[in-house]
Amino acid sequence: MKIFLSIIITLSIISMPQENIFSKEQRQYEETPSYAKWGRLAMSKTKEKYPDADIIDYLHRGKEVKETYSVEKFKLWLRKENHEFGVFIDLKFETETEKLIDITFTETSQ
């Protein structure tokens, strides 16, 4: 009976979906998007540029990869007093080293 029970338990563990085997920390790491680092930088630089505004929304618009550099593109929605506006942020960096080259901000009402 003990051998039968051991076989059943072993088969149950083997047939478990892999996602249940990984720790919560491992799953969170795997779910972190590749642009997360750049998103944090975009928000930080936006707070520096607009210190009196609150960031109320965040959108990753994509990534452009060129020959030697890449550009991560974001749109943040800000609120300052009773005024809301969007800011497009482009972070240009060397693709190989990820060294930041330039940051551009473009305000929009939409």
Rank of each mutant, 00 (worst) to 15 (best):
G62T: 05
L59P: 03
K66A: 10
R79D: 03
E48L: 12
E48T: 14
K49P: 06
W77S: 03
R61Q: 13
Y58P: 09
E48K: 12
W77T: 04
R79L: 02
F74H: 12
I55G: 00
T46P: 00
H60Y: 15
G62M: 06
E48R: 13
L78M: 02
M43P: 03
F74E: 10
L78N: 01
T46E: 00
G62Q: 03
L59H: 11
I55P: 00
K45Q: 15
S44L: 07
E81D: 13
H60E: 10
K49C: 10
K80I: 01
T46D: 00
E81R: 09
R79S: 04
Y58H: 12
M43L: 13
M43Q: 14
H83W: 11
R79Q: 09
K63W: 05
L41F: 03
K73I: 13
E67Q: 02
K45F: 09
E67W: 01
K47E: 15
H83R: 08
K45I: 09
A42F: 11
D54H: 10
T46W: 00
Y50K: 06
D54A: 12
K75W: 14
N82S: 11
E48C: 09
S70R: 06
G62F: 03
T68L: 15
L76N: 10
K66H: 12
K63R: 14
K73A: 11
T68V: 12
M43T: 15
E64V: 08
Y58G: 05
K80D: 01
K47W: 11
Y58F: 13
N82V: 02
E64R: 12
K80P: 01
D57T: 07
L76S: 09
K66Y: 14
S70H: 06
V71F: 12
L41Q: 04
V65R: 15
D54M: 11
L59I: 06
K73Q: 14
D57Q: 11
K75P: 09
Y50E: 04
I56P: 03
A42L: 08
L78V: 03
A53V: 04
S44F: 08
Y69G: 11
L41P: 02
I56L: 04
I55W: 00
